[in-house]
Structures are given as structure tokens and as C-alpha cells.
Design a protein around this nucleic acid. Structure first.
Length: 269
DNA sequence: AGGGCAACCCGGACGC
DNA sequence: TGCGTCCGGGTTGCCC
């Protein structure tokens, strides 16, 4: 659910709120969300300071002054909230990390996780990921070569984390729409111009989504005007039957390799 | 190699 | 209010 732009928005806001803060308490309500015994997990975090928050694909990495890292993946439906004891969502919280009166709540961690890892372990955990779509070193020549080696459909290629990392179900559809290309089109059958358009669409859609704050439904904290600003910007995702904003034809919803996929059958080719 | 699919997991929505 | 049912969805791994 949360994809690159959502996690990047979170990273930026969390950085403002939490960097240099010291963890004062940890509450674990779902042991499967973490990779240690709760007591050990807790003792390795209390009195530890967050020095930096990095992002890799859909993961956040909380760098700690103990030398360890907290690696977060929200997977499906996971989200966070920063608030106080009095101000927090009425939801089940799988993990709560306190920084004095400020608390970071982890909600909806069903398959999501928060793993305490050494640098080497974190590196290993992230080693299978493909390049970051917005990495400046991923220029058109590199992208051209990358996509030329893919025989699958555009949709499955874009969401494949080993190919490119950070793009999920929503943005793969948005990128295909922006590019005017059908999601079931074969990646290696794109001509030069189409590859160029796809490349520019990928950069454009993701950059714009970050600028708007992603498409998250819930704010990160009280008064958060940033998170979720992209909700009204989605042009095909979750717009089944609504008119295409380019040509007016109804947006089609179709299952493509067991993922719900939205596109305009008229102006995407 | 790529497509299809099951398994993972459980809160929350919905129906009665 | 209360209980049962079902869905969602990124990722992994397995099969063809």
C-alpha cells in the first residue's frame, strides 16, 4: 500500500519530528512484528538516540546511535501516527515507541515488521532490491537497458522490486497512464520513444507524488497537511467507471497477474 | 524467464 | 451490542 512517495513523505516528516530524540520506552503488542524477544528488543532501544532516518524502496531505516538500525516495512495497510497518550487513533497498535511524551504508533502491521539489525544485516536484507527509480544515476540509458531485458508485462515489471524498487500497485498504474501505455503491454516490445516516455513518466509521477505528500489516507500527526495530498491526484487508481481525465472514456478495472489494475482503454495504447 | 497462485496475517468492515 | 465472515494486499516461494 504505502509505496515510495508515501514512505519518502513519512521519512521527511519523521526526520523533522524524531531525529536526535531519545527512545524512552517501547511497547510491543505483536511479537511477530519484531525480530527479537520483546524484552531484548526493548532493552536494545531504550536510551538510544535516532541519528538519521533513511529510505530504501518502501523501507525506512532508523539509524541509531547504538550502531544498530531499525528496519521498517509497512507492507499491506500498515501506517504510523505520531502523537501523545491523549491524541492517537482509536486503533490497535502493534508497536509503540515513546520519546518522552511523544509517541510513535505503528498501526496495521499485519505482515509489516520492525526489525532491529546490524549494518551488515540491514544491507543483506535490502540487497535484492533493484535501483531507486528517482536515483540520479538512473539516467535514460540505464533505464533503456534495464527495460529492454524484460519480457513480462509493463505492470508486472514496474512492481517487481528486483527490477526497480519502490513502485507498487497504485503508481505502476499511474505511470502507465501518464505514459499513455497499456499495463499489459510487453516491456521489451516498447520502441525507443515509448521507453523514453515511460522513463519520463516514472520520474514525473513519482516526483510529483512526493511533492503532494503521497496518497495515504491517514495523517501522520495532528495538523499534518502534507500526508495524503496526492489522494485527489490519482488519475486512474481506484477510479473504475469514472471518466478518464484525458479523453473522458470510463476507466477500466481489470485483474492483471492477480493485482487490480486500472487504465483507460481508449487513450492508453 | 515469466505467469499464476497459495501462503503469510488479522483488523476492520459488514451482515444478520 | 455481539457474533461470524470475509477482504485486502506486498512479498516470497513454488510450480509449470
Amino acid at each position: 500500500m504505502p509505496e515510495l512517495p508515501e514512505m519518502e513523505t513519512c521519512r521527511r516528516l519523521l526526520t523533522e519530528k524524531l531525529v536526535r530524540k531519545v527512545i524512552t520506552d517501547v511497547e510491543v503488542n505483536r511479537e511477530k512484528s519484531i525480530n527479537a524477544q520483546p524484552a531484548q528488543f526493548k532493552s536494545q532501544l531504550i536510551n538510544v538516540q535516532i541519528t538519521e532516518i533513511q529510505r530504501r524502496a518502501k523501507h525506512l531505516i532508523f539509524k541509531l546511535n547504538s550502531g544498530k538500525n531499525l528496519l521498517l516495512h509497512l507492507m499491506l495497510g500498515g501506517w504510523m501516527y505520531i502523537g501523545s497518550e491523549a491524541d492517537n487513533p482509536d486503533r490497535t497498535k502493534q508497536v509503540i515507541i515513546s520519546f518522552g511524551d511523544i509517541k510513535l504508533y505503528f498501526i496495521g502491521l499485519r505482515l509489516g515488521y520492525l526489525h532491529l539489525l546490524t549494518d551488515a544485516e540491514a544491507e543483506e536484507a535490502l540487497s535484492g532490491l533493484g535501483p531507486e527509480p528517482l536515483d540520479h544515476t538512473l539516467g535514460f540509458p540505464a533505464f533503456h537497458e534495464l527495460i529492454g531485458s524484460r519480457r513480462g508485462m509493463l505492470k508486472t515489471t514496474l512492481v517487481n522490486q528486483q527490477f526497480l524498487s519502490g513502485i507498487g500497485n497504485c503508481y505502476s498504474d499511474e505511470i502507465c497512464f501518464e505514459a499513455g501505455l497499456l499495463p499489459m503491454k510487453k516491456a521489451d516490445e516498447l520502441d525507443e520513444d515509448e521507453r523514453k516516455i515511460l522513463y519520463q513518466s516514472m520520474k514525473g509521477v513519482l516526483t510529483r507524488a512526493i511533492q503532494f505528500g503521497g496518497y495515504m489516507e491517514e495523517p501522520l500527526f495532528k495538523g499534518d497537511a502534507k500526508t495524503g495530498g496526492y489522494n485527489e491526484q490519482c488519475r486512474v487508481y481506484d477510479r473504475e467507471g469514472e471518466p478518464c481525465l484525458r479523453c473522458g472514456s470510463p476507466i477500466v478495472k481489470e485483474e492483471i497477474s492477480s493485482r487490480k489494475t486500472f487504465y483507460c482503454g481508449n487513450c492508453q495504447r
